[in-house]
Design a protein around this nucleic acid. Structure first.
Lengths: 186, 186
DNA sequence: AGTATCATGTAAGAGGTTACATGATTTT
DNA sequence: AAAATCATGTAACCTCTTACATGATACT
């Protein structure tokens, strides 16, 4: 079975299942509780996605709880070894400069999931990677504003892009410092 | 014909056509040239979307140029009066606090298209609206971080969200000041 | 004459949304 | 007993991506 590529949503689901065995309903509640319901997956997206992960052999469902025989009908998903491997490999995916802006939210999600799952060295490497990608993006935006003739509003909108990505960049640098300080030797 | 609601992509296309009659290929080049190809619509997305706009009576195509009889086969789209109306109405849509984070890019796009199309007073109103929505979002995030027990990485990721949205907020405030300064009386 | 670019489109397949369906269990 | 919540799922519809198809025109 060739390593099938997953959607961003599937990767996030797999990650959540790796951090704790969960049913579809559990996952729904996690999304609902998370810093505002920025993304609220519908049943029609969630349950088929879980079935796809199962079909690909990345998760496995227990339809009953051995402990309590009278539990409600629910399918609790656990990662398979292959699923854990796929998740780890996703966490270790390098940040691509070309898509750093588009995927920033996803990278942050990966960063959150790296805690306790990847060694500090790799987390720092990820952050350095992110810093470089953001620097490149900011530089390119900057260059574009200088080279191109633009309307007043278009220029202001680009200023916005520069401001927020510089804020991301500062965050990444600050976070490297904070995590490096925790343990003297990397 | 009840005012049919458009996708974000369709709204952007309509806006571009309102600012200058364009063919599908023209629009493709605009997306390609824009500050990095963050979004590069495929033919399979672009041409059907234009047909949908045409079907909804918002744009009209001229298949030939009256000026040059031997031009290449291209469909140049123009807005209909109904299309201009729909576009203006889209530009005037208020910013909703609940979705300001998700739709920020789209709002910026609207801001760019407002230039020369909406009076300065309305632009300032939009920016005030945006400021309030961003303030509310930042406050909610802040509250969430204070109330909730979080892992170290999750807390850092929320710090990122706070940092970038505060940057957006500062931009909006700065932009209000800049545009207000241009003409002394609002 | 051959290649690159212009220009528009379609077909297959994937995945999402909305809305509905279904039933068990817990709360009031 | 009724209502709310838990819990999973399906069906119809829409739009996107990828890949391919098709020709006309401009360049070399």
């Amino acid at each position: 079975m060739a390593r099938p590529q997953l959607t961003a949503f599937e990767h996030v689901l797999l990650g959540l299942i790796c951090s704790a065995p969960s049913s579809g309903y559990d996952l729904k509640r996690i999304f609902a509780a998370t810093p505002m319901g920025i993304y609220q997956p519908s049943s029609g997206a969630l349950y088929p996605a879980l079935r796809r992960l199962e079909l690909k052999g990345l998760v496995r469902a227990q339809s009953f709880d051995r402990a309590a025989p009278s539990v409600r009908h629910r399918r609790v998903y656990e990662p398979t070894p292959m699923g854990r491997e796929a998740h780890a490999s996703w966490l270790s995916t390098p940040v691509e400069a070309a898509t750093v802006s588009r995927d920033l939210g996803l990278h942050l999600m990966r960063f959150v999931m790296m805690e306790h799952e990847r060694p500090r060295g790799e987390v720092l490497e990820f952050l350095h990677n992110l810093t470089e990608a953001l620097s490149a993006f900011v530089a390119e935006l900057q260059r574009y504003t200088e080279v191109t003739e633009l309307g007043a509003h278009a220029r202001l909108a680009l200023d916005h892009g520069l401001a927020v990505h510089r804020a991301s960049l500062r965050w990444a640098e600050h976070t490297i410092a904070a995590l490096s300080a925790k343990t003297p030797g990397e």
